[in-house]
Design a protein around this nucleic acid. Structure first.
Lengths: 256, 256
DNA sequence: AAACAATACGTACAAAGTACACAATGAGTA
DNA sequence: TACTCATTGTGTACTTTGTACGTATTGTTT
């Protein structure tokens, strides 16, 4: 949806343009300052936070829809995107929608089909924090990163959705190399390790971690070293795109 | 849906009783004669096979809906059920629905919202083959098991759904003990191994398989042996329910 | 009773995972 | 300039797990 007018149109006649009852919610993960972050929207019309999301257009592929939403909020097009779960509890949106309708001055005598529930397909995305331009939309006054550990109570069942996305991410990190998407192009092994530690929420042994990660053969060590203050400068690494793609496809297996 | 009248009502006024646009498809796996089986429906109104599925009732939890459908087709209530993916490509149902409407003598000038697409939430279920009573419904003339390798071309995108379910099952078997659901209560290690071999589609070393599976400590060896024809009688095993549940919860890890 | 095919049980070797110690570096500070 | 300190780079011994494989036992068929 592009504007408030679109939104009013949606409430009243939305089933002509959108697939009714169906929405997409995106849990956009970024990694910054050794912390895992999630991109959230602060609503303008009513008080509260939510995940970036939106509705599927008629004729639009569901996955394309997720990419569209991600582009609108982050400015990015090349993104790691993964469907992880579909949420369909009755009343999962609580009374937030009615509040929103009222705040928009729309007659709340809306079509009865809106009242049963929204089904929401959950996708998580992994993005390079430094490349994202968080962008609010017409219904939100703010779009901002939040620490995964400091997520405010959100509207609807979005806290649960984040929990599930994190669970899926934790599971995925054992079977897929994910650093390519979450880190900048050039990074150090300690940074990569912090990423793993943050997602897995546990400490790893530095030497064993490096042994394992290097044994995958998907990293290139560059000549360069990174200045990190009053300490020894770690080597800079980058991913070998080809081998990385192969590892993504075949899958890997970490024990940690 | 219970009857054809329900169905006509659904086409014309279904959004009052059901959540429009949303269906559930179940890939019901069973294991028999060392083969992995899937339960399919042969349609009566039009020619073709499909997965057992149905629509979500207003106010009904999506998961409850899946259990309801499973009970109708298999007679079982205690079932291992897992959401694995949601399918939402536009036109994924092709023209099968229009054919069905015509065959039911319903005016095809149906509400326009039916024409965009159906979203279908895919669940897979693991059941004890020997306990299932395949039951057709009003729109199907047959409900029958099919070899996973001999699945006929199906309506809609149901072949793709089975593929995805199998992929998820293959993945899951590395991380969860699944035998409890697919085998009868009492079984032998060779049977269990065949189950693993069938799902993974590869041969495993008998001695190493037994070593690994027994090391989980979730099996009880009974005094009894099973008669298997002109050969040495293997021991009969059963699952230790408690330890099995713990392993399910904590997850396991096989290398194979 | 011999043949056959399947099961039970165990051992030696290879690979992977884990625990752990010491040297090098780069800035801040005395 | 030398010392301090946190952080990085590297290697080794040990333990656990995975893999390959051989021999004895059993229940029917012939």
């Amino acid at each position: 949806m592009e504007s408030e007018d679109d939104f009013k149109e949606f409430i009243i006649n939305g089933d002509k343009k959108f697939v009714p009852h169906l929405s997409i919610d995106c849990v956009i993960f970024g990694f910054h300052n050794n912390l895992l972050k999630v991109l959230l929207l602060k609503w303008g019309k009513i008080d509260g936070w939510s995940l970036p999301g939106g509705h599927v257009l008629r004729g639009e592929n569901v996955e394309d829809s997720a990419y569209r939403i991600l582009k609108e909020r982050t400015g990015l097009t090349e993104i790691y995107l993964q469907q992880f779960k579909t949420f369909g509890k009755p009343k999962r949106t609580g009374n937030a929608l009615e509040l929103l309708f009222k705040s928009s001055g729309v007659n709340t005598n809306i079509k009865s089909w809106l009242l049963d529930r929204f089904i929401s397909i959950g996708y998580y995305a992994l993005v390079d924090f430094s490349k994202v331009m968080p962008t609010a939309d017409w219904l939100s006054e703010k779009c901002a990163w939040h620490d995964i550990n400091k997520i405010p109570p959100m509207l609807f069942d979005h806290n649960e959705i984040v929990e599930e996305a994190l669970k899926s991410l934790k599971f995925a990190i054992y079977h897929q190399p994910l650093g390519y998407n979450l880190l900048p192009e050039r990074f150090t092994l300690p940074q990569l390790q912090k990423m793993y530690e943050t997602i897995l929420n546990k400490k790893l042994d530095r030497r064993n971690f490096q042994k394992k990660i290097l044994s995958l053969g998907i990293l290139n060590r560059l000549e360069e070293r990174m200045k990190i203050g009053p300490h020894r400068s770690p080597f800079v690494y980058s991913y070998n795109k080809e081998k990385y793609e192969a590892a993504l496809k075949e899958g890997i297996s970490f024990s940690f």
